[in-house]
Design a protein around this nucleic acid. Structure first.
Lengths: 138, 138
DNA sequence: CTCTATGCAAATAATTTGCAAGCAC
DNA sequence: GTGCTTGCAAATTATTTGCATAGAG
């Protein structure tokens, strides 16, 4: 597991428990945003199952530390994605099969400045998702 | 109520009932994305209250007809916004007070073409929201 | 040892579904 | 009349909270 995480956890007074390690492991291995329930599902079959509540609590904590970002795709449940060691990016989801694909781009650097100027908000994050039909479902 | 809506409803074989009219009215009057529960709340006090279930069912139907768009702001509940007669736009929300402000801009025309080219998806929609701190909460 | 973290049970909250009765067309 | 709609009750699903116990530092 990346040192940066261990440092962030330590800085936040968090302990590195076995369930936590397992949850972080699943999140790190997931190349795409994953739901709490799916994290739980992956661990369910493992040698050290973790309670779903623990998954939720850990994800919340990781969000507070800025290590994980929520990704909303209008599915009725939230997805989460590791932030550390990954480039900022966005997603596109197929309306047919639900497949999610990473989009390694972000067109919003300049726009953010414009938004701040117009609204006087101080912008610290944004969410951008695309929707459509993948080649197979078209 | 706009003719375009009446036409869309008719085209979809939908009837114009009193509860439906009331729900559409609240949605039309709302300048910002509103939750199903809030729509219900507004009607609760009116002379013709409408069941929350009816609100959900109507919003679902209006989404299917493309008359209403969902807006996800990571609040644990969805918001919805009328699409007809309004210009396509996005939103920014304050992390402090939760205030939502319309952003009458969309930088994604060109980007959508690039995304389609890269992913071979056919893109039909996108969601973009900004988050930060409003002048009062900074 | 002390304080955070976990599991289990239970509570909330949002949204959906089933069904009989009501109303638009 | 016929078929879409509604209200009410109940079910689902997602997420949160309380509390006693377990485990990391």
């Amino acid at each position: 597991m990346a040192d940066s995480i261990l440092d962030s956890l330590k800085a936040g007074g968090k302990k590195l428990t076995k369930p936590r390690r397992a949850i972080l492991d699943v999140l790190e291995r997931s190349p795409l945003p994953i739901t709490a329930s799916a994290v739980h599902g992956r661990l369910r079959k493992s040698k050290s199952p973790v309670d779903l509540v623990t998954v939720y609590r850990n994800i919340a904590m990781l969000q507070e530390l800025g290590l994980v970002t929520p990704v909303g795709l209008f599915e009725g449940q939230m997805r989460y994605e590791v932030r550390y060691g990954r480039e900022h990016h966005h997603h596109i989801q197929c309306r047919g099969c639900g497949r999610i694909v990473d989009l390694m781009l972000c067109p919003l650097k300049k726009l953010t400045a414009l938004v701040e100027q117009r609204t006087r908000f101080s912008v610290d994050d944004h969410a951008l998702e695309f929707f459509g039909w993948c080649p197979q479902c078209q």
